[in-house]
């Protein structure tokens, strides 16, 4: 049975502006895909540990040694809106963190 999804809510979390048409299409497609994907629940028993990385490693560090940063112009080269030596953005509403 296809899964029901709150497309509005998910799109909000993902910061994605979607057209009405896109929402309908996604609701149908994601429902179908998740129905198939939900099969993972059939085999994964509780005693099976999860694997996050195919070849687990540990304790990989870099030493605390300074290397040159980018020249400011290089750092800002791709910026859609350069504001002096800063990245310009529209006003920030009180939200987020």
């Amino acid at each position: 049975m296809p899964v029901e999804i709150d497309i509005e809510h998910v799109a909000k979390l993902a910061r994605l502006q979607l057209s009405e048409e896109e929402r309908e299409q996604l609701a149908a497609q994601l429902g179908q895909i998740l129905e198939h994907a939900a099969r993972v629940g059939e085999v994964a028993a509780d005693d099976v540990p999860p694997t996050a990385s195919p070849i687990p490693r540990a304790n990989v560090f870099r030493e605390d040694v300074i290397e040159p940063s980018l020249p400011v112009d290089e750092a800002l080269r791709n910026s859609p809106e350069r504001d002096g030596d800063r990245f310009g953005v529209p006003r920030i509403a009180e939200t987020g963190a």
């Binding site: 750092a75 504001d83 002096g84 030596d85 800063r86 990245f87 310009g88 953005v89 529209p90 006003r91 920030i92 509403a93 009180e94």
Partner: peptide
């Protein structure tokens, strides 16, 4: 303050 600002800029 955030109120009234139409624009902001960021230093990383």
């Amino acid at each position: 303050r955030i109120h009234g600002a139409t624009h902001a800029s960021i230093d990383f």
